[in-house]
């Protein structure tokens, strides 16, 4: 293996791991103020919104493709809380849809 590539990978791994690990290890002993706790508890729902849009519009050259996929997933998720059903259903429905387009 190319040793420059190896050390680059190790470096990338280190700078990725540190922000993942620090809060879980350091905050174990520290009690955060209430407001900050509330904000951190809001993060999951906010980040889900940000992870979906606008990224889903860019999965294909045409934005409608991702938009259609998101709509199908939304419908499936509304009627089923099983995430695997939503994932597989969306893949199948979108593949079928693109066959006819």
């Amino acid at each position: 293996m190319n040793s420059a590539i190896f050390w680059m990978i190790v470096g990338m791994g280190a700078v990725t791991y540190i922000p993942r690990m620090l809060p879980l290890v350091v905050l174990e002993k520290i009690r955060l103020p209430g407001l900050l706790q509330n904000i951190l508890q809001n993060v999951p729902f906010a980040i889900l919104g940000a992870l979906i849009f606008p990224g889903v519009l860019f999965i294909h050259d045409e934005a409608w493709y991702g938009l259609a996929g998101a709509f199908i997933a939304f419908l499936l998720a509304y009627f089923s809380s099983n995430v695997i059903v939503v994932v597989i259903g969306s893949i199948v429905a979108l593949s079928a849809l693109s066959l006819f387009m």
Partner: peptide, 17 residues
């Protein structure tokens, strides 16, 4: 192509309920 929706479908599946 169809698989490219997978991660987004998962995020939506987690969020909507």
């Amino acid at each position: 192509e169809g698989m490219s929706i997978a991660l987004y479908a998962m995020f939506i599946g987690l969020l909507v309920p």
